[in-house]
């Protein structure tokens, strides 16, 4: 191969000396700054290898002794220690005492809001507004299981109808159609009666027939006037507030084969102080008793 390095007239660069069918190649080296950046990167990598664990040999952890896991654990422990005096007070107090003390209350609302966003918002909505399909709003004064600070704390600690906590709140509404206790016509009637309890019935005759079905099957849990029973988590049916939507099809389906709400227990997952903060926060959303 002929090697004739010459100066290209137009660009003023040298050629590489290669020639293919009359085509010549310019020899344009990397700009200096680029080249030195490249060398600097190599140097940086070498320094890094000495400072930090990068060679998989036991004991070769690098001269700084830095290990990400230990650093993270230490940072967490440090933050926990810093928060501990306040957390200890929040843990030792009852939610009622916290709510009564302005300093503790302010702290609990701020901390409760964060814990709520992380643990509860997926089911109860970012502002506790709930979601259709059985996730109650926590921002009104209509409570399934009770709206005092102590009730709310119990609900959060043990959850509802879950399998992990023996003390979970629990109750069962029968599957009136699924278990053959009522027939379809009776279900339609009693659904009209349920709607009628809050003045929403569309078929008065059916609602009247449904009153008997209701008296025989439902009052033990939902009460004579559908006022509900917090011992059993049986909702008030006369307030136009629904777990599962107000349309008659949904109500019929629910009475036929209820899908009962389940909430995990947080007693094992969260610190007692966090649970107290959550109770105070939820209580403050608007409906606390």
């Amino acid at each position: 191969m002929p090697t004739k390095i010459e100066k290209d007239a137009i660009s003023g660069q040298n050629t590489t000396g290669h020639e293919w069918d009359g085509l010549k190649e310019l020899n344009t080296p990397l700009p200096r700054w680029w080249l030195y950046t490249f060398y600097a990167c190599i140097l940086f990598a070498l320094v890094w290898m000495v400072m930090y664990p990068s060679i998989p040999i036991r004991g070769l952890t690098g001269v700084t002794g830095y290990i990400a896991r230990e650093a993270g654990t230490a940072e967490l422990a440090e933050a926990r220690t810093r928060a501990e005096p306040m957390m200890a007070r929040l843990r030792a107090a009852t939610p009622a005492q916290i709510a009564a003390d302005p300093e503790l209350r302010a702290y609990a609302i701020a901390g409760g809001r964060v814990a709520f966003a992380n643990n509860c918002a997926a089911c109860h909505g970012a502002g506790g507004q709930g979601a259709t399909g059985g996730y109650p709003t926590l921002a009104d004064d209509d409570w399934l299981w009770g709206g005092t600070l102590a009730d709310i704390r119990t609900t959060i600690t043990h959850g509802i109808r879950n399998q992990d906590d023996d003390e979970a709140r629990t109750s069962v509404m029968p599957r009136f159609l699924g278990d053959g206790m009522l027939n379809r016509a009776q279900i339609q009637d009693v659904a009209q009666h349920v709607l009628g309890l809050s003045g929403l019935a569309t078929d008065q005759a059916a609602a009247a027939r449904g009153a008997t079905v209701f008296a025989e099957n439902c009052v033990s849990c939902h009460g004579e006037q559908g006022e509900g029973n917090q011992e059993l988590g049986a909702p008030r049916l006369s307030d136009r507030i629904w777990l599962n939507g107000p349309d008659v099809r949904t109500i019929e389906a629910f009475i036929s084969n209820p899908r009962l709400g389940v909430m995990p227990a947080f007693g094992q997952r969260l610190d007692g102080a966090t649970i107290n903060m959550l109770a105070v926060y939820v209580h403050s959303l608007g409906g606390g008793r």
Partner: peptide, 12 residues
């Protein structure tokens, strides 16, 4: 695991 109910996962 265990953060939500089975029902919630299915609905979600």
């Amino acid at each position: 695991g265990g953060r939500y109910s089975d029902d919630w996962h299915a609905q979600h």
